[in-house]
Design a protein around this nucleic acid. Structure first.
Length: 464
RNA sequence: GUCCCCAUCGUCUAGCCCGGUCAGGACACCACCCUUUCACGGUGAGAACCGGGGUUCGAAUCCCCGUGGGGACGCCA
């Protein structure tokens, strides 16, 4: 059997979105599963829309996801690797011209209106096209049969000659795609189902060149989640761009894990699984045929489970990188030991790194916001002023050496007034953090320290 | 409009190929437990075979027709 060679062939005409990422992932997984080669090819034949920054984004996104390519431009953009290059279509024009002449010479292509057209074989007739509202020439030829690895046998009839070189002299997608796959010896074309109806053109082109087509595998599309509306996910949809997850500092392994299971599954109940297992179990016949809707909540949940199991040092590194980019991040990073203690409280509670700012804000500044609703509720119940006064009176003598000590001290305080711990909790929490959610009160006290806690209790007392 | 693909809980899906298990898991939602808050975790509940015809002793599973969803119909990729 010939070696597996697959490619991901994005065009740098826009942001890198979730659907592209999954197509790249499935190609990459298949290459790694089979011990084959993963090629990155840049389809930059649309000169009007290509942008250098989008190219950079492709490299960065793939690298961030951990989808390394064996052949293609180097990730830093300088030079390339592999023996089938160049890997940017804009640099392959001589090759395309050669292949164009082959078709011209055999009569499978002809010039018209300054463009070059691929000639279909069969009986010709003219008919009015409803969709385009004009009369066109059609060809009645044999249907093209595609034996798709995921869809099975698909039959489609191509009935019109189509342009392979524009009148501006540039080749079009269908043509370069096929020529590149031939010359790069691509064995399996794994791409979105939106290309299924293009495939008949491609197969015809292969036949025109006298080349056996590669195997095709058309994967299902990613649709918008129900609350986002109908149709396939587009670049404009919230959560559709890889960049967003990168900025929100999702763990790439969580995103890869989630994406791998959108249209594929290991055949059992496992969902969270190490990449090595995904690679081992992934195969084309296991890919689903129906489109999948993107579920941001499930992704967030998966990210949380990954976050939970990160070693403290790794979590700290992620947190540092995050705070470095935050407006008030310097304050958080000022005291490394204190920072570490705060992170220990936050790690088991957040779903993604970007929640860190909101979750830990009051640890790093005294000017934190107080939730007005929480405040109203807390101050309306029981006798918060009395509890505050008791807390303030007891605080100088409170032992802050450990959670246990803080807890014992607070319990003793409560008992001395014939009350329970719970009678102090809400108001104390409001005073030190401005909210009603967060780490345990004892941890909150201990990490914040005696001075901060006292000052914040007094401040609330004065305000109320 | 024409062509192509698809169809199991709200969502991702197992089961389908090789008909016969209370149609299983996960996310979300709800309840309870754990918890001195909020989460996490645990337990439990509700929740699906799109409809109609066949084939068969028996259909989520095989076939056909509807319906619904998606995609493609560019000198874009």
């Amino acid at each position: 059997m010939s070696p597996v060679r697959v490619r991901f062939a994005p065009s740098p005409t826009g942001f890198f979105h979730i659907g592209s990422a999954r197509t790249a992932l499935f190609n990459w997984l298949y290459a790694r599963h089979t011990g084959g080669t993963f090629i990155l090819r840049i389809e930059d034949t649309d000169q009007a829309r290509n942008r250098e920054e989008y190219l950079r984004l492709i490299y960065d996104s793939l690298t961030w996801l951990g989808l390394d390519w064996d052949e293609g431009p180097n990730p830093d953009g300088a030079g390339e690797r592999g023996h089938f290059g160049p890997y940017r279509q804009s640099q392959r024009s001589a090759l395309y011209t050669g292949y164009k002449h082959r078709l011209l010479e055999t009569g499978r292509a002809y010039e018209k209106d300054g463009a070059v057209w691929f000639r279909l074989l069969g009986e010709r007739y003219r008919v009015f096209d409803d969709h385009r509202q004009k009369e066109v020439e059609k060809v009645k030829g044999a249907p093209v049969v595609i034996n798709d690895l995921i869809r099975g046998r698909v039959e489609r009839r191509e009935d019109e000659d189509f342009v392979i070189f524009r009148s501006d002299g540039n080749p079009v997608f269908h043509f370069v795609n096929v020529v590149d796959d031939i010359t790069m010896q691509v064995s399996h074309v794994i791409r979105g189902e939106d290309h299924l109806s293009n495939t008949s053109k491609h197969v015809l082109l292969y036949e025109g060149f006298g080349v056996t087509p590669p195997a095709f595998a058309h994967i299902p599309l990613i649709l918008k989640s129900p609350e986002m509306g109908q149709g396939k996910m587009s670049k404009r949809d919230r959560g559709a761009l890889i960049e967003e997850y990168q900025q929100r500092r999702f763990l790439p392994e969580a995103l890869v894990n989630y994406l791998s299971q959108l249209g594929w599954n290991p055949g059992d109940d496992r969902e969270k699984m190490p990449l090595a297992d995904i690679i081992r179990l992934f195969d084309l016949p296991g890919v689903n045929q129906s489109n999948a809707r993107f579920d941001a909540r499930k992704l967030a949940h998966l990210n949380m489970t990954y976050l939970l199991e990160q070693p403290a040092e790794k979590f700290a590194a992620l947190a540092r990188a995050y705070f470095t980019t935050q407006p008030n991040g310097a304050a958080a990073l000022a005291d490394a030991a204190y920072f570490q203690k705060v992170l220990a409280l936050a790690q088991p509670k957040i779903k993604s790194i970007d929640e860190l700012g909101a979750y830990t804000g009051y640890f790093f500044t005294d000017e934190f916001a107080t939730d007005p609703k929480v405040r109203e509720k807390v101050m309306a119940k029981g006798d918060p002023q009395a509890r505050l006064a008791e807390l303030i009176a007891a605080l100088p003598a409170l032992d802050f050496s450990s959670d246990i000590a803080v807890e014992a001290g607070l319990k003793a305080l409560a008992e001395s007034h014939g009350l329970g711990f719970g009678d102090y909790q809400a108001v104390a929490r409001l005073a030190v953090s401005g909210t009603n959610a967060g780490p345990s009160l004892t941890a909150l006290f201990r990490v914040l320290g005696q001075d901060r806690v006292l000052a914040r209790l007094q401040r609330l007392q004065a305000q109320a």
